[in-house]
């Protein structure tokens, strides 16, 4: 199908769907006046029942904690699938050498880049850890903080060479972190079952409101999610970087041409 045909199809679809979308927009509830009572109930009850100040974390890790367990497993499955696709025929073989296109000049890094990257990567790493640790108290949490920590790895690659980057960011450690985080979440959900409680029931002491360790089981689940997200995104970065290797080291398999 060429581009003209596609655009014609799009216009036809638009003509059919635009009135429906317009009616839907006009039928939506008034902006700024939410209809759902769920959020208000959470806002009213969770600070009292769980001694927690971050309501988003309360929804994610306690009230709808089982949903987040599903999300965590989805992340694990997606990362596993991506890693398998990226590895392809390469297997678990890794190289310390960055891929390079023959004949292309490689300008060396300026000192300013190295200095800035070292500085910002350190601050970003610490900020990510801070985000994870304070997930139940202030805005943030395992998912957000984990992604911030993983982005500091990219800055390390930018500032150091590929070889140094590979020495600092250890693949097996990241994989272990990812697996441990996901396993810890599953255990946090399953262990209360042994004691006769509901899954993910908040059986740990709740701590005091606005304290770093407030929220009981939520603290553990938050840390588990943080570990899993750091591991997941770190592994993803590592595998994508490995894909930049020169093509001759990873030949296209022959079965495709049969």
């Amino acid at each position: 199908m060429n581009t003209t045909a596609r655009i014609v199809l799009l216009v036809i679809a638009l003509v059919v769907l635009a009135p429906a979308a317009g009616m839907l927009i006009l039928a939506m509830p008034a902006f700024g006046h939410p209809l759902s009572q769920y959020g208000d109930v959470v806002n009213a009850l969770a600070p009292r029942l769980r001694n927690i100040s971050n309501m988003v974390a309360a929804v994610n890790f306690d009230i709808r904690g089982i949903d987040t367990l599903g999300e965590e497993c989805m992340l694990l499955a997606a990362v596993t699938g991506t890693v398998m696709l990226l590895r392809g025929h390469r297997g678990e073989d890794m190289s310390e050498r960055a891929g390079r296109v023959p004949g292309r000049k490689q300008p060396s890094r300026s000192d300013a880049t190295v200095l800035l990257c070292r500085f910002i990567a350190t601050v970003l790493f610490l900020f990510g850890i801070y985000m994870v640790l304070h997930g139940t108290v202030t805005p943030g949490g395992g998912f957000q903080g984990g992604v911030i920590v993983a982005s500091s790895f990219v800055l390390l690659y930018l500032g150091e060479s590929y070889r140094a980057w590979r020495r600092i960011v250890l693949g097996p450690a990241l994989a272990a972190l990812e697996g441990t985080g996901a396993l810890a979440y599953v255990l946090a959900a399953a262990l209360p079952l042994l004691g006769g409680y509901a899954a993910l029931q908040n059986v740990l002491p709740l701590g005091t409101w606005k304290d770093l360790f407030s929220g009981g089981l939520m603290v553990a689940v938050n840390y588990a999610v943080g570990c899993a997200v750091i591991g997941s995104f770190g592994v993803l970065l590592l595998e994508f970087m490995e894909e930049t290797r020169a093509p001759e080291n990873d030949p296209v398999p022959d079965e495709e041409d049969e």
Binding site: D40, A44, S53, M55, V56, V59, N60, R64, E71
Partner: peptide, 30 residues
């Protein structure tokens, strides 16, 4: 919906949809 600087009971936006957006972003990234 973070009751750190202001006490619980003050009006706050819906935290459930914010948690949903968080899920949405994670799914999108993966």
């Amino acid at each position: 919906p973070i009751f750190y600087d202001h006490p619980p009971g003050t009006p706050a936006v819906d935290p459930v949809v914010q948690a949903l957006v968080l899920t949405d972003i994670v799914v999108s990234a993966a």
